[in-house]
Design a protein around this nucleic acid. Structure first.
Lengths: 157, 157
DNA sequence: ATTAAATACATGTATATACACTTAAATAAT
DNA sequence: ATTATTTAAGTGTATATACATGTATTTAAT
């Protein structure tokens, strides 16, 4: 049982921020890293990486429908992920299966296997448990966080 | 000139969130990816990756003092970054120089070169410019965002 | 003083990211 | 109908991440 580093200043050993906005950017990057690291620890017990888990969750969202690679890609959190190769590894572990599309010969269609569904269910339970004990902010605070993040991204570029 | 995707639901083509907390986690991960992607576009013009830039900024914080690899590592946003190899690439580009430590033979000490300082200054200006036009939230909102992120991480595990 | 433990860094491997390029197939244009 | 364009997926390369291991050196313990 330990306390994680709360303050960004401690985490990156710096307090030289240009302004609150700059600090917020670094805070978001650090928090994302922290979230991924915590989750990866749990997923590792199931032999999964964060990205493999993400692909499986996306497939679950449409199950038992099949999904083509493009449809998975556009739902990924990190858009530049190389989905074909993530699928390669899931196929090797027999957690998903890949087949040629009947309607479009360019496409391949992917589905979870029964093993995949089982592993996903078990790992999701562990991840949810972790999240509940790790992150204890109120619903209202989470809402405000969502509002601010979307406001942050919502600017003309 | 285009508008970026504001809503998480659009960005990842899903509205199936367990709760606001779950949505906030995904929102943080997506926003971090978005920030890194935008910044990387700018840094690419200077031949830098996001991580190489981070190492150079850390070195700048102590300049003209030299820093050992460990001191750089513990200041990285992503703690699991492999700093020796990031430095390898910066050395090849002659943006930093590496020398044996006079006090501890296990250590190597790193400093920015004059070229490194110039490239860092120019790229930082571009990054700041991008940030200013990209992210237009109020100081007060940024403060609230910082508070919420640190509250989110500030839980016993 | 010698040995044991800890530390700093480097190296190795698997996976992921970022992005350019290739190939085959589908769609649009003529 | 033929050609051109676009699209879907896969491949290749450089870099980064995550983590285990190796090696030299320093510090602590005896």
């Amino acid at each position: 049982m330990y306390f994680c580093i709360v303050k960004l200043e401690q985490a990156i050993q710096s307090n030289k921020f240009k302004n609150e906005m700059h600090k917020a950017s670094l805070n978001i990057l650090y928090t994302a890293w922290w979230l991924k690291t915590q989750m990866s620890k749990v997923l590792k017990e199931f032999g999964l990486t964060h990205e493999q888990y993400n692909v499986m969750r996306i497939l679950k969202g449409k199950y038992p429908e099949q999904m083509c690679v493009k449809d998975i890609s556009c739902r990924m959190i990190e858009k530049s992920s190389n989905v074909p190769r993530i699928i390669d590894r899931l196929v090797l572990k027999k957690l998903v299966k890949r087949a040629d599309s009947p309607t479009d010969k360019r496409e391949t269609v992917i589905t979870l296997t029964q093993a995949g569904i089982a592993v996903l269910a078990a790992s999701t339970e562990s991840v949810n448990q972790l999240m509940e004990q790790m992150v204890q902010i109120e619903t209202q605070e989470a809402q405000e966080l969502n509002r601010l993040l979307e406001r942050m991204r919502g600017t003309e570029v």
